[in-house]
Design a protein around this nucleic acid. Sequence first.
RNA 1: GGAGACAUGCCGGAGCGGCCGAACGGACUUCACUGCUAAUGAAGGGUCGGGGUUAAACUCGACCGGGGGUUCAAAUCCCCCUGUCUCCGCCA
Length: 422
Amino acid sequence: MIDPLLLRTDPEAVKRSQRARGEDEAVVDQALAADAARRASLAEFEGLRAEQKEFGAQVKAASKEEKPALIARAQELAAGVKAAEARAKEAEAEFERVSERIENVVIEGVPAGGEESFVTLREVGTIPGFDFEPRDHLELGELLGAIDMERGAKVSGARFYFLRGVGARLELALMNLALDRALANGFIPLITPTLVKPEIMQGTGFLGQHASEVYHLPEQDLFLTGTSEVALAGYHADEIIDLSGGPIRYAGWSTCYRSEAGSHGKDTRGILRVHQFNKLEMFVYTTPEDAEAEHERLVGWQEEMLGALGLAYRVIDVAAGDLGSSAARKYDIEAWIPTQGTYRELTSTSNCTTYQSRRLSTRFRTESGKTAPVATLNGTLATTRWLVAILETHQRADGSVVVPEALRPYLGGLEALVPAGA
RNA sequence: GGAGACAUGCCGGAGCGGCCGAACGGACUUCACUGCUAAUGAAGGGUCGGGGUUAAACUCGACCGGGGGUUCAAAUCCCCCUGUCUCCGCCA
């Protein structure tokens, strides 16, 4: 939710942001008007209410003879107060409806424009070359007995799969490597609920444009989360948290569910785009002043992970029009996928500034002792999708795959994944 | 699934329909004092929002799990929801 003070004091800044995103800037003026209406009706209600309270005291103090007349007058006042309160509530709701449509104000420097307007910040690592025809991750996965799409489809349908044998072990190894690195950086591990209430889903902004990609259980009115970010953001909802010791960092592990509605026919092969996968997500609560620095730290940790796994990647500054409504800036790291001859997204890290926390009411105490909305940031530290890049990058001509050194301790020292027949 | 009890501020715990933003403890902060971060004494605090101020001060309203209702007036009465605890059943 947008900062109402910023909206009032610098509506032009909000409009610039909406323009950069390619969103409607008229809502800014609408919100401004709704805010004024809301404050006016609130003042009216509060004035009447004060009058009523004062009059109530008179009623109490009055003698028996005076009372009936006073009560008659008090009844009129009560009716007026009730009506004014209803108007104030409606004006409040209207302001929320309108202001909700304003997305987070993008940070200075974020490239304007749509999806293709991203800026590449850096390319790191050597793009692997092969003196043989490289196999794609599914072919490798099948050779290794690691990925079984057919049985996934048999049991659950398209875009479901089984990870089996070294495939299952590889994912667990990846998650454990990520978790150990997170621990070393002061993250608190958290295994989160994956079914959440509507208000949490709403509060984290996932019922906006992405509502159609979310699984919903109507019977219980619960939503399956597409990332543990949802539960992690909701974790401190309605709380005043203590940031005096620095940022609070959580590493949330969960299975993630995405309906992938609207992506029919896209990435249908293998486990690149699936309905269910696992992810270790970083989630940070920090002060607004520290948010941009923390954002850089998050990308840094992500890059260390990709580096440790020997993957070639690029870091992109995602364009304003491609940001989620809560994000003020987002960096994606895309790894080179040899058989696709292109970079594909492995991580994403967003700085949501105070936008998310405002809606969820997560605050901290400033040095002056006042409360203020915290900044929240999130970022991927490992997901099932990484297996695609790992398998393809480190494959050898015989279909075996070299295990990156960083992963070996988590696989009992295994140095290579070898096809059963080899 | 059935039956019952409870839900108050950082914690514990009172609370008659108006004098309750809420007693009393504890914790906490500040000050004083004892030559030590211990003891003692005193004082002070909540959250959200409106108005106001350069910022304060100040001021008004809302908030006693959440939402409705009754009433001139609700923490206090009624209804619904949610959560917690206890017992029975069920499953392990």
